[in-house]
Structure formats: structure tokens, C-alpha cells
Design a protein around this nucleic acid. Structure first.
Length: 825
RNA sequence: GCCCCAAUAGCCCAACCGGCAGAGGCAGACGACUUAAAAUCGUCACAGUCAGGGUUCGAAUCCCUGUUGGGGCACCA
């Protein structure tokens, strides 16, 4: 008797070298008419070794990649590294090593862990965003955008991280006002920086989310919609009294123009300074003092909506273009300089913030919408503004109209008079992409002595980072590259006169916003991506990654895709057809962290239970989007199941090709039911259910072998083969070995899943239930094609005693499953 | 404060269109094998679906209210 037992170490050592040598999952550029599927897992950042979060995402992504291969598709499943970024640089500074060495050492470690984990990646097309061969095309992309005016410089208030000593994009500042990277409280600084004009794409980025409704998580769609934050309304131009100076305001409620009793300008806006400058000295002093106060406030203080309103009168009045009324102009920090025009008309009767301010400074409150209510409607007394709908009053031409009609009418009047127009604004701001740090893609711009911005000529790309030798990488508020004299001083491409390179590097989110295209032709040194390959593979059919990128990375990738579409480089404008966000791996109800000491180590889990058991556990723990509490799952249980499955393949004694129709029909039904259901289950991400069904099949086969048809039955072989195929998605070593035990040639992962035989699924009898008043009373075996009349007759006969003396009010018959007899009371 | 999602056995989770609450696993009890243990194999038990109301012949499933947990947004005019 064969004494070999299931031993995950033996299987890993047996199969890893075979896959490494034969590369079954590499995809070449040959033409192939199978359907193509591009399955992409978010590529990792190389900080240390892989952790349990990686273990989850790469297990689940691989289930999908391997599933589509079993379905006969040609699958592209690449991997690479998002290897530029601050952590590398900070770690390098701390340890005195080169950020490049630190990064590539970590990549080497992660790469070997990833290979051990046996995800079916195409290892022939690995890319690292920190390779000049990659970032050359990042620079190309930047210049494409620069030429179209989509990359530009402006002087503005920016988010400054005082720890990392660099600017941050709005998306990198957390709601509490801290930096998502360093955790430091972000401060505002006025600096000239590079931006991408993402706001030009706000409408499309918002509207196109509708197309992703069925295939992206609702949560991500909501977050993106909130982030873009479109508001429709009107721009209304007020004029400063006794001057020609104009104050444009944005409002969503132009219908309440007659209720505007004052105006508010953001204190940190240019407009406020200008207005104050021409005011009398007392006002100037008061403004200066207020501005200083405001700028001392942290973001978190400023954003606290419950904070009492403060402000200063600017000493001027402005004329309401609709009714000619003169209203005072104030400045207050509840108005933001960088939203709308940085100024508002205040309608205290119908807006909470304006009402709070009016009450504080005793400004008039005028009701212009007659909101129906039983309570007395007096916002000035109740402190509650009237935000409902109703006929307008005190509003001249708008009187009697409801909200929607009054808004339309107000815009019409403004447009006719040339004092305003319908307008839309967004919460989304332009994407600030320059960073004052070393380890990133150099911005390929040369600053001429005359201040001109000159693109680095295409034949001089890439602009390669200078060596770190002699550079001080410590954060100091300006890019370390500026000190690399040999690098930064270059001849002006126009005439050879002295010029300087732009010393900043790009936000690493630029790198990751198009990497999915580079995977299609990673070694092409003539272009960023090959249009033929793009046509064959893109867009990505299935993207898999963490919800932490719900806004940042996904919004940027969508934006860049639309830019590339507009520039004619690609013919689609959404990068990711479907998105799966996996949850986190946690421990004992909380996030794993070094400081809490509650960490499960990736390598240790693999050592203890084996790669296959860990991967299977990731899939089996629950719905993929839920968090997995490692304390709640049993990797041992997974291991036991795999051993049980493997032994079945070992037990099979029938020959390859044995005709299953001669075998156990009951077992065949279970096997084929799984085959029939597996597609729907995997495609709706119910991997845990697939595993449960595979366990069920194992239980049935075991029973059949031990106390049924026996190991030689052909249906047992059929079930074992299906098991090997299904398990290849979760447990590649075990499945490959089972496939071999069953007498087949490698590779199980390149096989096609058999189609379910429908005729085996048809049951000829079923258990019908008999209810009285909706309560189950009896069960009976009936033919599946029983008629309603016959079913009712048999059911009635069965419960005859219970019906005695009762009046039947009605009967519900759902043949062949159910009869419900409803009695009159 | 506003919006969204969830709640099923001791635990993790299933349940197609409203039709017998249970597919699977963990933990548990018992048995077989064993000198014994582990491994293995087998058997068993356990909830009426967060609470309350409604619709329906019939509700875990649909509707309303609330509780708890999670997430998002939050001075964006």
C-alpha cells in the first residue's frame, strides 16, 4: 500500500521549480483567438516583506485569474512594483543607505515571497516604476499633458507637510487635517507648484461613474461622487458701491437673491486683501489682525463647523444686481478662498451658516421663501433657517414661484442683464503633482533664464535621477535635486544659454495612474505602450485591490485614462471594467500594527500551514469585501481539508478516461451541480461558497469511496478530477499534485473546466411541503412534473385529519414544491 | 449633524424570484481504529434570523421605526 501522506512542504518543493522552469502563465505576443481577460491586482509598494494584506489580495486576484483560464480564456495577470516614494527615502535617510538599494532589496525579498505564494503571474513582464525605462514614459506623459495645457504651474495656497517637508495633494490630507503619510498636521503655504488640470475632467469623471454602477462597489462610487462634489447653481456678479470693482459669487440658490442681506469674502483671498487695502486705516488694521488670527488656525480648527463664526466688516458695500440693494461686505473664515470665487452672498433666512453669522453680528434676516409650517417661521428667533420649498415672497419678479422655477427665472434675469449666469462648481481641485523630494520621477522641464518653461526634448528623455552621492536627502523644504549642480545646470535647448532643470519630482500617484498600460509591452523602448497590445488587452477586465485607494489612485487612473483617450493614444476612457475591493486582515477585532504587537507574519503562516492552506483560508473566510479576523479562521481546518481532497485523488483506482456514465448517478449529480453553479459563484465573488461546495463534494466522494460505489467507480474519478480543477484556483500545489495522481499531464491550471451535463441535474422527484395557514405540516415525495391538481389532491389527503370540520378558505399550490391550505377562522 | 451598508447556531458564514432556516468550516460531545496518543474515519447536538410594527396565504428576504456595529461626508455657498 502507498504510504505517502499529504505533505505541503513536499508539494511546494516539488512544484515550485517546475512552474519556475516552464512558466505556464507567461503570455507572449502571439495572436490567439481565445477571449482575452486582463486580470490586474494592485501592485505593491516595496516596504519590507509582504504582509497578510498582500496575502489576501494576491490570493483573491489569483482565484479570478485562474478561473478565467479554466474557462478557456487567455489571461494576462501581471505584477510589478510601485517603487518610487517617500518611505524609501525616509528609511534611507534613517539608515544612511541609498534609497535605490533599499528599494530594490525589498523588491527582491517581496519577489521571492510572491513566487513562493504561487500566484499565477506572468513573470516575463515585471516592471518597477523607479526604473528609468519606466519613468521615461512617465516624463513623456507629463510632456504630453504640458503641451495640451493640462500640466501647468500656479502660485497658490498648498498643503504642506512639515515632517516630510513637501507639498501634498488634497487627496493626501486626511479629514482630520493630518498627512496620510507622515501623520503630521498639515499647514497651508503659498507656493508655486505643478498641477494637473483634473478639474477640466470633473464632469466626465462624475458622469462616467454611472457606467461602472454594476461592476464597481457602490461604496467606491459614492466616495468618488462625494469627492468630485458637483454643485449646480449660478454665478452672480455684485459691484462694489462707488467703484467698478466686481465681486462674483457662486450660489446654489440664486432664487434667494432678494434675501441676501450681506456678503462674505474669504479672508485669505486676494479679493479680501484688495478690498481692505483701499479701506480706511481702522478697517485695514482690523483686517490684518483677523487674517493673522485665521492663519494661525490649524486645518482641523478651521474645519470645525461648530466653532462660533467670526469675521470683520470690510468697510464697503456692494450692489445686488437683481434688486439694486446695497449690502455690507464682510470677511469671515467660514468662506473658503479656493471654492467657487472665494466670496458668497449671505442669505441668513435660508442658510444655517449665514444665519449663525447674522445673529452674531446683528445683521438683518429677510425671509424670501414662504415655507409651509405649523410653527412660527422666524429663523432669527428659532436659529433654524428655512430650507424647504414654497412660494417666493419679497422677491419682485420671483414672487409666487417655487424653488425650481425661481432658480430658473433668476438665472434667466441675470443672464439677460449680463450680471450673472448659470454655473457649476466642484469640490474637486486640480491635482498638485510636484514634490520636493528625491526618490521620484524628475519633472522634465528646463527653466530658461528668461523664466520660460521648456520641455526637455524627447530625444533627451529620460531625465535620469542623479546619484545620491554628495546630496543631502534630508527634508529641508526644497528639492535635494536643486543641489546636484552637475545635474541641475543644463544648456537651454533653444540656444545653449545657461538654464536649470526643474528640481522637483512627481507625485508617485502619477506613476501608478497608467502602469496597467505599460504591462502590455513592458520592454518597449520606443513608446509608452504598444497600440496593438492595448487593442488586444485593454481596458483591464478585473481590477483587485484595497478600498484605501477608493479615491486617490482610482480617480487619478480614471483621469489619466481619459486624457490619453482625448490625446488619441487609446480608444477607451475608463481603465477598469470591474473592481473588487477586498477587506483587511485583522486580528482580534483590530487592525494589526507593530505598536500594538498584534501582527501575524506572512512567512510564519506559510511555514506553519503551507501556501495552499493560507490561500484557501483567504478565500474561505467569508465574502472577500469583509475583513478577515485571523483569530476567527482556522488555517488548520483548511490544511485538513486539502489533505482530505488530496487523499481522494490518491485513492482513485479507475483508469484515465473511464466513462463516468457508468458510475454513481448520485455522486455525478453533486459533481455536475457544482460545475453548473461555479461560474455564477466566482463571477459574483462568492469564493467562500465555492470552497464550501468543494468541501461538500469531498464529503460525498469520501462516502462513495468508503461505503458506496468504491474507489474504482468512474464517477469517483470524475468528481476527483473536477475537484482538482476547482481547487487549482485556491490551492495550486495540491491541485497540481492531484492532477498528476489522477494520471494527467501538467498543468492543471491550463485545463478547461468541463461543462455541466444538464441531464444529470434534472431530479425526477422532489420533497413537496404541505402547509396549513403557512405552517409546515407534512412533506411528501412527488414527481417534479406533478400537476397542480394532483399535488393538491395528495396534499389534502395527507392532512385530511387536520382539515376535519374546518372550512378551507383558499389553497395556494406551487407545483411541485408547495401546497398551502388556508382555513377560514 | 447628514448619507450608505450590515446584523442568521458559542464563532466564521450559506440560504436563487418572498415558499421546509443550513451548504461548508471552526470550536464541542460521542464512537471506530490504536497498547496509548496523534492523524484518520464516522455519528450527534446547537439558532427560528437584533427589537418592535406593517404588507402577504406565506417574510431571514419587501416596507416603516428603533438599537447596535462598520464605513463615508461634514462651514463646499
Amino acid at each position: 500500500m502507498d504510504e505517502i501522506e499529504y505533505d505541503f512542504r513536499r508539494l511546494e518543493e516539488k512544484w515550485a521549480p517546475v512552474w519556475e522552469a516552464e512558466r505556464p502563465f507567461d503570455v507572449d505576443d502571439s495572436v490567439d483567438d481565445r477571449p482575452h481577460k486582463y486580470i490586474l491586482d494592485m501592485f505593491p509598494y516595496p516596504s519590507g516583506d509582504l504582509h497578510m494584506g498582500h496575502a489576501e489580495v494576491y490570493a483573491l486576484g489569483d482565484v479570478l485569474a485562474r478561473y478565467w483560464r479554466l474557462r478557456g480564456c487567455r489571461v494576462l495577470h501581471p505584477i510589478g512594483w510601485d517603487s518610487f516614494g517617500l518611505p524609501a527615502e525616509n528609511a534611507a535617510i534613517k539608515r544612511g543607505v541609498n534609497p535605490r538599494d533599499w528599494t530594490y532589496d525589498n523588491i527582491a525579498q517581496q519577489r521571492s515571497s510572491m513566487k513562493r505564494y504561487a500566484a499565477s503571474f506572468d513573470w516575463s513582464r515585471v516592471l518597477h516604476t523607479s526604473d528609468p525605462e519606466y519613468y521615461k514614459w512617465n516624463q513623456w506623459l507629463f510632456l504630453e499633458m504640458f503641451k495640451k495645457g493640462l500640466a501647468y504651474r500656479k502660485d497658490s495656497w498648498v498643503n504642506w507637510d512639515p515632517v516630510d517637508q513637501t507639498v501634498l495633494a488634497n487627496e493626501q490630507v486626511l479629514p482630520d487635517g493630518t498627512s496620510e503619510r507622515s501623520g503630521a498636521m498639515v499647514v497651508k503655504k503659498k507656493l508655486t507648484q505643478w498641477y494637473f488640470r483634473i478639474t477640466d475632467y470633473a464632469d466626465r469623471l462624475l458622469n462616467d461613474l454611472d457606467r461602472l454602477e454594476a461592476t464597481w462597489p457602490a461604496k467606491v462610487l459614492t466616495m468618488q461622487r462625494n469627492w468630485i462634489g458637483r454643485s449646480r447653481g449660478a454665478e452672480v456678479v455684485f459691484t462694489v458701491e462707488g467703484s467698478t470693482r466686481e465681486i462674483p459669487v457662486f450660489t446654489t440658490r440664486p432664487d434667494t437673491l432678494f434675501g441676501a442681506t450681506f456678503m462674505v469674502v474669504a479672508p485669505d483671498s486676494d479679493l479680501a486683501s484688495e478690498l481692505a487695502a483701499s479701506a480706511e486705516p481702522a478697517v485695514r488694521a482690523a483686517f490684518a489682525e483677523y487674517l493673522t488670527d485665521v492663519q494661525k488656525k490649524t486645518e482641523i480648527e478651521r474645519q470645525d463647523a461648530t466653532r462660533p463664526k467670526t469675521g470683520v466688516f470690510l468697510g464697503v458695500n456692494a450692489i445686488n444686481p437683481l434688486n439694486g440693494e446695497s449690502v455690507p461686505v464682510w470677511t469671515a473664515d467660514y468662506v473658503l478662498a479656493d471654492y467657487g470665487s472665494g466670496a458668497i452672498m449671505a442669505v441668513p433666512a435660508h442658510d444655517q451658516r449665514d444665519l449663525d453669522f447674522a445673529r452674531k453680528y446683528d445683521l438683518p434676516v429677510r425671509i424670501v421663501v414662504d415655507v409651509a409650517s405649523d410653527e412660527p417661521n422666524d429663523p432669527a428667533a428659532s436659529r433654524v433657517p428655512l430650507t424647504g420649498d414654497g412660494p417666493h415672497i419679497n422677491s419682485g419678479p420671483l414672487d409666487g414661484l417655487n424653488k425650481a422655477d425661481a432658480i430658473a427665472k433668476a438665472i434667466e434675469i441675470l443672464e439677460e442683464a449680463g450680471t450673472g449666469k448659470g454655473a457649476t462648481t466642484y469640490r474637486l481641485r486640480d491635482w498638485l503633482i510636484s514634490r520636493q523630494r528625491y526618490w521620484g520621477t524628475p519633472i522634465p522641464i528646463i527653466h530658461g533664464e528668461d523664466g520660460e518653461l521648456i520641455p526637455v526634448p524627447a530625444d533627451q528623455l529620460p531625465v535620469v535621477l542623479p546619484p545620491t552621492e554628495g546630496l543631502d536627502l534630508r527634508p529641508k523644504g526644497s528639492s535635494p535635486l536643486g543641489a546636484a549642480e552637475d545635474w541641475v545646470n543644463v544648456p537651454d535647448p533653444r540656444d545653449g544659454s545657461p538654464a536649470r532643470r526643474d528640481p522637483d519630482t512627481m507625485d508617485t500617484f502619477v506613476d501608478s495612474s497608467w502602469y496597467f498600460l505599460r504591462f502590455l509591452s513592458p520592454n518597449d523602448d520606443t513608446q509608452a505602450f504598444d497600440p496593438e497590445r492595448v487593442k488586444a488587452w485593454a481596458p483591464v477586465d478585473q481590477y483587485v485591490g484595497g478600498v484605501e485607494h477608493a479615491i486617490l489612485h482610482l480617480l487619478y487612473a480614471r483621469f489619466i485614462t481619459k486624457v490619453l483617450f482625448d490625446l488619441g493614444h487609446i480608444d477607451f476612457d475608463e481603465p477598469f471594467e470591474a473592481l473588487l475591493n477586498q477587506g483587511m486582515v485583522i486580528l482580534d477585532g483590530s487592525k494589526m500594527s507593530k505598536s500594538k504587537g498584534n501582527i501575524v507574519f506572512f512567512g510564519e503562516e506559510l511555514d506553519k500551514f503551507g501556501v495552499d492552506a493560507v490561500r484557501l483560508t483567504m478565500a474561505f473566510a467569508g465574502p472577500p469585501e469583509d475583513d478577515i479576523d485571523w483569530a476567527d479562521v482556522s488555517v488548520t481546518g483548511s490544511h485538513k481539508f486539502l489533505a482530505r481532497a488530496w487523499r481522494i485523488a490518491d485513492d482513485v483506482t479507475s483508469a484515465v478516461g473511464a466513462d463516468p456514465s457508468t458510475g454513481s448517478a448520485a455522486l455525478r449529480r453533486v459533481t455536475h451541480k457544482l460545475l453548473a453553479d461555479i461560474g455564477g459563484l466566482v463571477e459574483s465573488y462568492k469564493f467562500n461558497v465555492v470552497v464550501a461546495r468543494a468541501m461538500d463534494l469531498v464529503n460525498h466522494v469520501r462516502k462513495e469511496i468508503d461505503s458506496g460505489a468504491g474507489a474504482a467507480d468512474a464517477a469517483v474519478r470524475e468528481a476527483a478530477e473536477v475537484l482538482a480543477l476547482v481547487l487549482s484556483m485556491f490551492a495550486p500545489h495540491t491541485a497540481e499534485d492531484m492532477w498528476e495522481l489522477l494520471g494527467h499531464e501538467k498543468f492543471v491550471g491550463l485545463q478547461t473546466l468541463p461543462v455541466a451535463d444538464e441531464s444529470l441535474l434534472v431530479e425526477d422527484s422532489i420533497t413537496a411541503i404541505v402547509q396549513i395557514n403557512g405552517k409546515v405540516k407534512e412533506r411528501l415525495e412527488v414527481a417534479t412534473d406533478i400537476t397542480e391538481a394532483e399535488l393538491l389532491e395528495r396534499a389534502t389527503a395527507l392532512v385530511a385529519s387536520a382539515l376535519e370540520g374546518k372550512t378551507i378558505r383558499t389553497t395556494i399550490v406551487r407545483a411541485p414544491k408547495l401546497v398551502n391550505i388556508v382555513l377560514a377562522d
